[in-house]
């Protein structure tokens, strides 16, 4: 199983992004997804900057994938998406169906937001050029087993295994709404929240994370304890989603478990301090926010 670093979902300063990926070049991940997936207004890095970053990471031996924006609304969004999707020099992760069309038959990764829930849909995407698919985060281990049985030849499976869960997208920016700002003049308040803006219930229980137009879980999804099951199901890669602190340690723990240097349960214990709260209910076919201790 290979280790993949998913696209950065938050808005960090240009320096923070460049510094992060300079470090990633030396970390033991095999696949790195880059690009702005969440919001078209986040332009600290321009398209050329992302390509430059992708080239540097490729030179460092990483398998680099360019990720497209998940919610496309305007003609401007479409143009930006096409510039990524039409590139022949990199593999592309399509995060909505427009990018699948724009890809024009070139190989692509079917991202986690494409709603692949069954083998018939996966087979269709494979015909259009999908060489890998990322399981929707809400699917369970049991559902994955079913999909793996229906998976067409030549398509790899990747599973989201660490990070706050990307749960929903909206036309509305919830960060701007919280600050009572219009989306078109959001003053880039996302920059103040390197891991999103925490949302709790009225009795103070962590529930969700607001990340611009995206809503995530408050808890970090952690499948480190399930790595043996993932391997047994024939999963090809596990995805770690970037967070602002402790990413080196997260990568190290998953790497050690994948290489068999530590047991998955041990990796899970090592990761406990690196997340404010964890969840894994989806994997067990339960409510996503539940957490079941790893035996």
């Amino acid at each position: 199983m290979r280790l993949a670093l998913g696209p950065l979902l938050y808005y960090w300063t240009r320096d923070a992004v460049l510094e992060f990926y300079a470090r990633v070049a030396g970390l033991p991940v095999d696949i790195v997804y880059v690009g702005e997936v969440v919001c078209a207004r986040r332009r600290a890095l321009r398209a050329d900057d992302w390509i430059g970053l992708a080239r540097d990471l490729a030179a460092a031996g990483k398998a680099v994938v360019l990720s497209t924006q998940a919610l496309i609304e305007s003609e401007g969004d479409i143009r930006a998406m096409r510039r990524v999707a039409e590139r022949a020099d990199f593999l592309v992760e399509a995060n909505e169906m427009g990018a699948v069309r724009a890809r024009g038959g070139r190989p692509f990764v079917a991202g986690p937001h494409l709603n692949v829930y069954n083998g018939a849909t996966l087979a269709w995407l494979a015909q259009l050029g999908a060489t890998r698919w990322v399981m929707p985060v809400e699917l369970s281990g049991r559902a994955l087993a079913g999909l793996q049985r229906e998976r067409p030849a030549g398509v790899e499976t990747e599973v989201f295994a660490w990070g706050r869960l990307p749960l929903a997208f909206s036309a509305r920016c919830f960060t701007a709404r919280h600050y009572d700002l219009p989306k078109d003049d959001c003053q880039f308040r996302c920059l103040e929240h390197a891991d999103g803006l925490a949302l709790a219930t009225r009795e103070g229980k962590p529930f969700l994370t607001l990340n611009g137009i995206q809503t995530q879980s408050a808890q970090v999804y952690d499948l480190a304890g399930a790595l043996d099951e993932l391997r047994a199901l024939g999963v090809d890669a596990v995805r770690l989603s970037p967070q602002s602190a402790g990413m080196d340690e997260v990568i190290a723990a998953f790497r050690a478990a994948l290489d068999g240097r530590i047991a998955p349960a041990q990796a899970s214990r090592a990761l406990a301090g690196l997340a404010p709260g964890r969840c894994n209910g989806y994997w067990h076919g339960a409510a996503g926010l539940e957490y079941r201790e790893v035996a």
């Binding site: 998940a70 919610l71 937001h113 709603n115 829930y117 929707p136 985060v137 809400e138 699917l139 869960l165 749960l167 929903a168 997208f169 909206s170 036309a171 509305r172 969700l208 809503t215 879980s217 209910g281 989806y282 076919g285 339960a286 409510a287 996503g288 926010l289």
Partner: peptide
């Protein structure tokens, strides 16, 4: 629906049952 329909897992996150599944 405030969220993009078909791409919202908030319900399954909270209670295990959502629109897609």
């Amino acid at each position: 629906c405030v969220m993009v329909e078909g791409r919202c897992s908030l319900s399954s996150f909270a209670c295990g049952e959502g629109p897609n599944t």
